[in-house]
Amino acid sequence: MLSDDQLLRYSRHILLPQMDVGGQEKLLGSRVLIVGLGGLGSPVAMYLAAAGVGHLVLVDHDCVDESNLQRQIVHRQSTVGQSKVDSAQASLLALNPTITVDVLNQKLSGTELAREVVASDLVLDCTDNLQTRLSINAECVAQKTPLVSAAAIGMEGQMYVFDSRVEGAPCYRCLYDESMDLSLNCAESGVLGPVVGVMGSHQALEAVKILSGITPPKTGVLHLFDGMAGQWRYLTIPQLPSCPVCRG
């Protein structure tokens, strides 16, 4: 049962016939894990906080650097030097003090990663390296937790939803494996701020759709964004018959 304050705060959601009160209640009752509070994690966390996703768990081991502020919009000049999770938590609670925001100022792996994934309704991969992406994917497959993953570099972005609850659904490892690690990241290659913002916003949109249940997840499609041309393309990812993660 939504309070009068909640009905007012989320009224523009509730007006949507697909969302209504039921969808909003599902958002309020959701717990989401956001790994990485950089260029992707910033819009992801801000939109989910604003949307009233009831419980956010933020993970990052890094501190805010001045060179982050060109695109990592959850952070502030005044929080340079602070841990990213503390900086983001303060921003998110300023935006929506009615939600719960927990922070883990560490790298997450092994049993700790498993514990957080199993406690979550959905995971957002907003990290910047292939190894972590593969570990998060493996844990999401093991726990059958929906994963919304994205990446951006230069003027381009990729976004994918993987949902192991769906029979025969592919996973991130069906597309990319350890041998493909080129280790290109934003620090070395550069990235246009709004490009990573588009990708993070796209992740937030998919997350809200899944959590509220307004549409079944479209799993196993690579959404490819060309920021220079302003074009999207979609490539189908079939389940790899020999995938050691989702077919293992």
Partner: peptide, 25 residues
């Protein structure tokens, strides 16, 4: 899948793309 590269023939009119993992975030 990589395991099918050997047995997949390129056909007239095919559009083929190579994608490297993008990891920046």
């Amino acid at each position: 899948p990589k395991s099918l590269y050997e047995e997949t023939s390129v056909q007239d009119g095919d559009t083929i793309e190579l994608l490297t993992p993008m990891v920046g975030g």
